[in-house]
Design a protein around this nucleic acid. Sequence first.
DNA 1: TGAAATGTTGGGGCG
DNA 2: ACGCCCCAACATTTC
Length: 474
Amino acid sequence: MKTIIVWYRNDLRLSDHPALITAVEAADVVVPVFIFNDSLLTGHHSSANRNRFLLECLSDLKHNLQAKGSDLLVRSGQAEEILVALANELEADEIYYSADYTPHAIKRDKAVKAALESAGLKFRGFPGRLAVSSLENLKTKAGTLHKVFTPFYKNWLQIERRQLAVLPDSLTPLATHIDVGNFEVIEDSIDTKLLSPDVLKGGETAARKRLTEFLDTGINTYQETNNNMSMAGTSRLSSYLHFGCLSPLEIETLLPQSTGAEAWRRQLAWREFYHYILFFFPNNAQQEFQERFRSLKWEKNETAFVAWALGKTGYPVVDAAMRQLLQEGWMHNRSRLIVGSFLTKDLGLDWRLGEQHFMRWLIDGDEANNNGNWQWIASVGVDPAPVFRRLYNPTLQQLNYDPDGSYVRKFVPELNDVPDKYLAEPWTTPAAIQQSSNCLIGRDYPAPIVDHKLARVAALDRYREASASQITDS
DNA sequence: TGAAATGTTGGGGCG
DNA sequence: ACGCCCCAACATTTC
């Protein structure tokens, strides 16, 4: 009688799950388990929206496992202790998991591996987090690591994919004496004050529903609509991908042949690129990839940071985006670029502040993607481009990507009656119109906390100075 | 009707 | 991975 434990983490699905399918093929009994560690629901990376999403994922996974005759065990505590104890209790000798490439996960899994092996247990990782099965094969022709996206992408497209993992209709039931644990207690204890009706529902079932919807209606026009912040032009699959409710490889196999689908596949490749980059350059988690920008002199301005975080900068599109994040635990991709540029260039604040804030509030907050994208918009990471090419004018961004103002008005309701003509720069509204539209600048809506024109010049100086000091130093 | 003010478009250049 | 500014040349509006 062979028993294998499948340790679930950020891979909360049944479909195309190599660790699970291999366990099912190799063992008589497979025991899926999820472990809450001490900080999962209370640490720096937790919010009400994110916690609820995770619990919905687990609840759905449990339900789907039960539908196949199995179940999901739930435990709380230190992973290595719980896995060793569980293996002893069940007489299991192997623990399978889906490999996770982020520094945090690698560190944790190393410690778990050491503990399990010293207890005589095997700890085996499987692909599934990314569409490609291994990051090791992705090198330039010269044999070096990729540091630029486009060549990486071309290479990535060519890399052979593994076969999809198909699960049988039914799984072996768990022994009846096992304590399955529960998370209803945890569910009852989460703070629900900040939840919005627009928050995505977690879980593989909801994920597949959203995927089908996107493939049926959005994918072929993706390249035309994905930048408009008020349109539902993006896939909104990021949170499902982060928690592993969907397999990126399976999605790839479902993509139609169209310009829109290729544009979306390219986005998927960015996700894999940033996992690749952080895997091979784990120091990026702390510091700028580009050495010459490690000496950047960021501003210290708590007031400005709070205004940014709460959506009170006086720039409507920035404020709408930041409020969307707090309400929905999600932000449109275009919005993320705009607020990232605003924080690092207009306010001159350290990109790590933005990285941490996003990590806390985004449901899809992912160490690799979040770090890679923040370094990208701060112009300090891989895939280099001059600073001025990632320095956005919030007014123009709003005019281009929220032309009718519906995104801004949805999240910044105090601007509701401000005429379109002034919506991108409400501080230019004539006094009489401020009166008639119930929006006095400085009373109902903030005056801009910085002058973009001046801030732009200061930002270019700040980066120039850092580059120049690097040359002098070396 | 003309001249000034205001609006639009396109290309170069930024590093 | 997906800008922006400036300026010149031309077009339109205003008084």
